[in-house]
Design a protein around this nucleic acid. Sequence first.
DNA 1: GATGAATGAGCCTTCATTCAT
DNA 2: GATGAATGAAGGCTCATTCAT
Lengths: 224, 224, 224, 224
Amino acid sequence: MDVAEAKKSTQPHRSRAIQSLLRKQQLIGSTIECIDQFGLSQTTVAKIAQHARVSQGVVIFHFQTKDLLLEQVLRFLSKEYTDNWKSAIAVAGEAPIDKLCLIVMSAFSPKVCNRKNVGVWYAFWGASQSRPTYQEVCGQTDNEFSSTLLCLCTQLCKGVKTSVSAEVAAMAIEGMLDGLWQSCLFEEPKFSPKEANKTVFELMELMFPLQKNTIEDYKHSLKS
Amino acid sequence: MDVAEAKKSTQPHRSRAIQSLLRKQQLIGSTIECIDQFGLSQTTVAKIAQHARVSQGVVIFHFQTKDLLLEQVLRFLSKEYTDNWKSAIAVAGEAPIDKLCLIVMSAFSPKVCNRKNVGVWYAFWGASQSRPTYQEVCGQTDNEFSSTLLCLCTQLCKGVKTSVSAEVAAMAIEGMLDGLWQSCLFEEPKFSPKEANKTVFELMELMFPLQKNTIEDYKHSLKS
Amino acid sequence: MDVAEAKKSTQPHRSRAIQSLLRKQQLIGSTIECIDQFGLSQTTVAKIAQHARVSQGVVIFHFQTKDLLLEQVLRFLSKEYTDNWKSAIAVAGEAPIDKLCLIVMSAFSPKVCNRKNVGVWYAFWGASQSRPTYQEVCGQTDNEFSSTLLCLCTQLCKGVKTSVSAEVAAMAIEGMLDGLWQSCLFEEPKFSPKEANKTVFELMELMFPLQKNTIEDYKHSLKS
Amino acid sequence: MDVAEAKKSTQPHRSRAIQSLLRKQQLIGSTIECIDQFGLSQTTVAKIAQHARVSQGVVIFHFQTKDLLLEQVLRFLSKEYTDNWKSAIAVAGEAPIDKLCLIVMSAFSPKVCNRKNVGVWYAFWGASQSRPTYQEVCGQTDNEFSSTLLCLCTQLCKGVKTSVSAEVAAMAIEGMLDGLWQSCLFEEPKFSPKEANKTVFELMELMFPLQKNTIEDYKHSLKS
DNA sequence: GATGAATGAGCCTTCATTCAT
DNA sequence: GATGAATGAAGGCTCATTCAT
């Protein structure tokens, strides 16, 4: 049940359901803030409660368990990430190259490509090694993205003998996205998101020589 | 001071110094084991001591603090990783393409490309967001590798107009290594290290068309 | 905020505030008991909690830190001691000799002159050498008493050439109080508090010959 | 066995016995230093050993137990203190007033009246409440001094009706010594030892009017 | 005799969770 | 529903003492 549903629900506890959802969202937000600030292992229920200006009891009341709260946070981030590139595809035309270019561009949108979110995501990812639940969510999120990428590359490589295989192309793009993400976030950024985006497009032009013109158009659209 | 130095040191407590070093190495090993098994945040001094079959006091005695121990573990992993690709360069000839190919191959050697080490490394990396010390070590390790890669790519791209820029090439390679590492380790491996290695070589052939024959030779050497 | 204030505070968590204060007082009491029984350095949070029949967490919850708790205990004793002689002055008339006599008598009241309180006070005092906070509280408490004593002696010595200076008189009285305190508490008491009190009055009669009659009256009042 | 005896002991381990004694003295000295610096409860075997530049094992080897070492330290301080006033008596003539004056003066000699020694002494004294051994040593040391003082006062008061009783006189003197000690040591000293000494003599002149001239002589001897 | 690594009990503190109010 | 006091199980660390070298 999300906010929209909650608002629709007729009577008399409608406001209660909404309030509960808002509270949950607030707590998820506070948790993200704390993980960003203190790190995953230093994030305590007390700190979350303090940041949200509520008592510790409230946190447990809404999520039963700290672990369950963290899982919700991870799912929230996963959905935010996935929604982002899916909505990019949605507005694209049918041509695979358009979809691919828009996916790449969406990866550098400030909505997902910002220090806080990515830092928190990596924190979960680093801990996932020993947490099956995290591993599952992280893995699934990655897989969905990877297979979409591979699917698009396969269409783009069909009948083209002069370049790399679809698998290589997909991996190269995904790898670069990861690497550039890191570069954008940590350190004093060597690249702006826009520069990073252009870098990926450059590689794509090499791998998909037939689409060079289209890619070039997207590259130019970044200038504005 | 490492073991070699300790052994050379003439008297009188030579054996003491060695024993102390061995104990430290043992504890670092046990710590890696525990991080792999339980995760970074669930790794306690008690578990480390138990795994090493010593008392908790010993751990503190040799490393003063749990945090200092973890830092040593991270530095150990960092050195192991860096030594690995540096020694690969050392045996290569002068030609940049040889160095690059050997670096790539070294990245898939079982010494560093194994579930345990990489999992532990990522655990530190995920926590580095809120730990300046980790961030520094991780960052420096990465930077050294990146700049070496970029340097080699720059030499390979010099005078070649038909392909991507050196920066793009270096990023693409590094990104793929990261991505393929992940793929090799987590999940039921989609690729064997050898397959992954070939995949990288394929991309390199596209980016460095003049070196195609040399790369092909290295690719074939993988079959044995 | 003390209990009185807490009780006055209108709603809504009045009882909560009171309960919290009572708990703090109880814990301070238990701590004094433990210090008396085990000594300052052997007083652990566990023992305090056990004596108060609560969990260890409660102690930390209310005082954050063992050191902070001990500081509160010291301040409590300091206030108890200071309040005692100040209220003695309050009920006295204007004449300095009356105030002085009542201060001296108050020093032997069972409220402050009992084995437990004084033992605990000396424990803090002995540790104050290396604890700036203790030193400050102890010093301030002593200073306030000393200067009051000196002030009264100065008034009593004004114009009297035949005796000692005010400084000597004040020191002699304070020194005797300290010494007699010790005697009353430790060892099998050589003197009862009443005898001790008389002894101090005897010295005062010598130092303040003009007040002999008044002092004599106070001395006789001890007999009942 | 002290150093003198040890040196006399013929052969062949004479030097060993001496060395052992010197080591013990060194360790006692280091312990005093540590107590002064860190406080009694923060003085650990490790710190003592470090200060003495020996290993921890040596400390235990020579004193069996930390507690036994501390006891020796206390006895050392006690003896130093007692020896000080006893040797003062030894050089005095037969007259009680001479002995008394010299005892008082010895109390302000830098040998015993220095921040470190007195601070450490009070540290033991504060802990004695819950340590029978300390209590015994401290009590005995005090008692010996008190009774000597009382004995001298008794002789001085014999046949003198105009002043206080011997008990009061003895207590007043001892109390003032304690109080002035404190004043000399802690705080920015209100009095120099010499001023303090004079203050005690002033009180004595009042209590022993027949000895006024003699006391006056001692008082003047302080000026040089 | 000396060294310092090793032990293990105990200490203070943290923290997720419970529950009376 | 919300609050915050209370719980109790760890956790990291200290430290006196032991003991092989």
